[in-house]
Simulated scan of single mutants.
Amino acid sequence: MVSSSTTISVSCAPKKSRSRTPQKKITVKVKTQQGGEEDVYKIGYGTHMSRLMEAYCNNRNLEEGTVRFIFGKKQLKPRSTPAQLRMEEGDVIDIVTDQDGA
């Protein structure tokens, strides 16, 4: 089983705010259903999931349109955040790769 760890440190917060406390981050696992491979990502609680999706596809050399990210039996939307999804430390996001008929 192959496992890797990636930190996504991009925030959606305005950059001018100096007195802000650091953004809370959580660790989530991204697991393929076909092979059971697992990657670990650390993502800001207010960061859009599109950042995680892009990082996963780049790490695995996949085109973004060929992969679906599933959390809580629902497909993730790129503009959703871990806070909106009520994700907790160690939650698992399942990956479904769309297969071409060719």
Score class of each variant (00 low, 15 high):
D98T: 14
R86F: 06
R79I: 09
G35W: 09
G72D: 06
K77E: 11
E37Q: 11
M49Q: 01
E38K: 15
G36N: 11
M87K: 01
G36Q: 09
K42Q: 14
T27M: 09
D39P: 05
R68E: 07
V96A: 10
Y56D: 04
M49W: 00
R51L: 13
S19C: 10
M87H: 00
E63P: 11
K74T: 10
R51G: 12
N58M: 09
E54F: 13
V40P: 00
Q84G: 14
S80W: 02
N59A: 13
L52W: 00
K42Y: 05
S80K: 05
F69W: 06
G90C: 03
G46E: 15
L85W: 03
E88S: 09
Y41L: 03
L76F: 05
G72V: 00
R18Q: 13
M53T: 08
S50A: 15
R79N: 14
E89R: 04
I26L: 13
I95S: 01
K25S: 15
L62G: 02
R68W: 00
I70T: 03
N59M: 04
L52D: 04
P78C: 00
G36F: 04
Q75A: 10
P22E: 15
I95E: 02
E63V: 07
T21G: 08
V67C: 05
I70F: 00
I70L: 02
E63T: 08
G46M: 12
V30S: 07
P22G: 12
R68H: 04
E89Q: 13
F69L: 13
S80L: 04
H48C: 14
I26R: 06
M87I: 05
R68Q: 07
I43C: 03
E64M: 10
E89G: 06
K29M: 05
G46F: 11
L85I: 03
E54H: 14
Y45Q: 09
E38S: 14
D94C: 07
G72K: 01
I70N: 00
D94E: 14
G72Q: 02
R18S: 13
